[in-house]
Design a protein around this nucleic acid. Structure first.
Length: 273
DNA sequence: ATTCTATGTCGAA
DNA sequence: TCGACCTAGAATA
């Protein structure tokens, strides 16, 4: 489930399990073998995330950069680990191992390269020091639909297809609304909702936008209780009744991904809150 | 047994 | 805008 919240959760897990320890590093699958050997037997110092990028820092300024892409997974198991196509395995007999499968990127990089990746990223709602003005300037200047801008990692780092659909629904915003058509209050509602929701995603390692504790006060229209008791309002609920108004949820491809929205709750004329 | 799908991104056309 | 890429589990036959 690689959206930003999961990557930040993984960084926390890696720190909790391995930081300060000398670890074993191998590439059973082989494609990362030479680089894995470079950090084998050295101290894993820390791990952090920027948007969907995961970094694992070792002694001697060696950094492993991981991007899970669409299908990559990183999981934790007891030593000596499992089977399958494991690109990178890192850990210790006592602490267990982290195993990486199917990543888009797994590469040994320098601190300068890590800085460059961070510099290319837009503000990350999970970063307490993030500057939302950088995102606002890009949104305000763009004719692209807000549903496309939310997926642009140079605008909102860490937001993926689920958060895109859910925050647009929660703001009552038409996905096709051009960025430049949003007023400041609408942008602030989106950014504020991401800042409120994503840390809960990190805490629970799952996206749940429906529970009462997630509802912004300004929303003013709590979801109807139903058997589903859903985690989400619209994501992957095509054809099912909207939790708020009962209209079947719609879907279509926007910016290369399946978008889900309620055409009633997110009317083109509706002003977001 | 085979095909399809997935919460992502990049580069070529 | 499109195909390529990485892997595993679910869906289909």
């Amino acid at each position: 489930m690689p959206e930003g919240h999961h990557i930040h959760w993984l960084a926390g897990q890696i720190e909790d399990r391995f930081a300060g320890q000398v670890v074993s590093s191998t590439s059973p699958q082989g494609r990362f073998a030479a680089s894995a050997a470079m950090v084998d037997g050295t101290e894993l110092v820390r791990s952090w995330a920027v948007g969907k990028h995961l970094f694992v820092g070792f002694a001697h300024d060696r950094i492993v950069h991981v991007h899970l892409g669409l299908i990559g997974k990183l999981g934790f198991t007891p030593w000596p680990g499992g089977t399958g196509q494991i690109r990178w395995r890192v850990g210790t007999p006592a602490a267990g191992v982290a195993e990486l499968r199917g990543p888009q990127t797994c590469a040994l990089i320098t601190p300068a390269e890590a800085d460059a990746i961070a510099g290319r990223s837009g503000p990350d709602p999970l970063d307490p020091d993030a500057d939302p003005e950088r995102a606002w300037r890009k949104v305000h200047a763009s004719a692209k639909p807000i549903a496309a801008l939310l997926m642009d990692q140079a605008v909102f780092a860490g937001v993926g297809n689920i958060y895109r659909a859910e925050v647009l629904f929660r703001a009552g915003l038409d996905p096709d609304l051009p960025g430049k058509a949003l007023d400041r209050a609408q942008f602030d509602a989106l950014w504020g909702d991401l800042v409120a929701l994503m840390p809960l995603g990190v805490r629970d390692d799952r996206i749940d936008t429906v529970r009462a504790e997630h509802l912004p006060e300004a929303m003013g229209r709590p979801p109807r209780e139903d058997a589903h008791g859903g985690e989400v309002y619209v994501y992957r609920r095509a054809g099912l009744p909207c939790h708020v108004c009962g209209t079947p949820v719609r879907t279509r491809v926007l910016a290369g991904r399946n978008l889900y929205w309620c055409e009633v709750c997110q009317r083109p004329t509706r002003r977001g809150r």
